[in-house]
């Protein structure tokens, strides 16, 4: 027999006491995050395998999504540019960007709810940092996003929107998206493990938010009301990525809003996660 098998790499010291202080729980939660980042290759593989298994047996795989997104952008684009009386060459790049970003956000929020429950069998048979499953959910959605970006590229190509230095301004925005995405998986993942009927509620909230946020309609169409838009966290997040790509600079208020809302989201998620982490195994 081959005895070259390697010993378990993780020589951990596991230490806890019940009725821990907040500092103790905080320490374990930080360890969880670190452990999850250390296992990024696992999270990456799980995210890829999820995507592959979901589209198993279909020839085009996730490209089906690209096609359906493309059809939707085309159909809505012509309809709404007529309804709103807007130039198609101005409206379609905006719409393609908005719809693709929103599709990412709403599917991430929805899947965040099952981040821990879908990993039930693993969580109950081995100690694993919960953050691994957060990264997995994020990666799975980024893969789909990457496929949908093709639609944006095609629309930008048709209407001659070319890359420019302004595009670099999206980088801080993308950092916020990643941070917020991970916070959402911790928050909703733990919350939905405890209360199983949350996911449909979350989905309806996202549906309402879709109409209240300038995704299909443009902020300018609100007239004077547009000044209040930065109060909508979804608007701020969309704008920090969308505006630079469309050749504008997001306003200061948009940036302040995006950063404040992200910090608030992390604070809430963290407060819940440090309490819930040790209990999730009992809930699922």
């Amino acid at each position: 027999m081959n005895n070259g098998a390697t010993p378990l790499a993780r020589t951990a010291v596991l230490e806890f006491e019940a009725d821990m202080s907040t500092a103790g729980r905080h320490r374990l939660a930080v360890e969880d995050l670190r452990g999850g980042l250390r296992l990024w290759r696992l999270a990456w593989s799980l995210g890829w395998l999820d995507t592959r298994l979901r589209y198993r047996g279909s020839m085009l795989g996730p490209l089906w999504l690209t096609i359906s997104t493309g059809v939707m952008v085309g159909a809505l684009g012509f309809l709404y540019s007529a309804l709103f009386g807007m130039e198609i060459r101005e409206y379609l790049p905006f719409l393609s960007l908005s719809l693709v970003l929103w599709a990412f956000l709403s599917s991430l929020v929805s899947e965040a709810c099952t981040t821990f429950t879908e990993a039930e069998s693993i969580i109950r048979s081995v100690r694993m940092p919960f953050f691994v499953f957060s990264i997995r959910t994020l990666i799975r959605n980024v893969i789909v996003l990457a496929h949908n970006v093709i639609v944006i590229l095609i629309v930008f190509g048709i209407f001659a929107v070319w890359p420019n230095w302004n595009w670099l301004l999206i980088l801080p925005g993308l950092v916020l998206w990643i941070a917020d995405g991970l916070a959402l998986t911790l928050l909703l993942g733990a919350f939905c493990a405890r209360f199983r009927d949350i996911q449909p509620i979350v989905n309806s909230i996202m549906q309402i938010a879709f109409f209240l946020t300038p995704v299909i309609w443009k902020p300018e169409q609100l007239g004077t009301g547009a000044a209040k838009l930065p109060l909508n966290p979804f608007f701020d997040l969309m704008e920090v990525v969308r505006a630079p790509l469309l050749g504008h600079t997001p306003g200061v208020l948009v940036w302040v809003g995006a950063i404040l809302f992200s910090m608030a989201l992390w604070a809430v998620s963290w407060a819940l996660f440090i309490r819930a982490r040790g209990r999730v195994a009992f809930w699922i």
Partner: peptide, 21 residues
Amino acid sequence: GIYEPVMGRMRIQGSLNALLD
């Protein structure tokens, strides 16, 4: 380390493999 106890304290040191499932 899968279930964290509600009372008491524990310390486990060393690499570990649990054949549970």
